[in-house]
Amino acid sequence: MTIGISTYMVYLAISIALTIWVARTLHKNGRVFLVDVFHGNEALADSVNHLLVVGFYLINFGYVSLALKLGYVINNAQEGIEALSVKIGMVLIVLGGMHFFNLFVFSRMRRRSTARGHHPPVGPDTFTTVQQEA
């Protein structure tokens, strides 16, 4: 196996492992949020959680796959490690971005569901009598 091919293999192994780890973390810890957002409806929370994780996998594996091509020839182990570090760094940043985006989605959903105040936004100008309909 050439250095180039082994670099690709290591890149794929690390990227896939990282993606799976982040997705599982999200899946495990996001559930509590979603159960709260959906007012204890666990079936719905699990379903949305699962759909979010599938989207997360698709985007990340899509990125990992698109970013695989190096575009130049690797001659020695040093170049291989440098190329690998750039690629893994990019994957980590994309994963981080996706992770924060997911957190943002969760917190937004949660805020939406809890910010439903029951008090009117403004006080009345005056009061009048209401004739009840017969």
Partner: peptide, 11 residues
């Protein structure tokens, strides 16, 4: 409102 609170204009 149904208890007679009156809101006028922007309110």
């Amino acid at each position: 409102g149904d208890h007679g609170a009156v809101y006028f204009g922007p309110k």
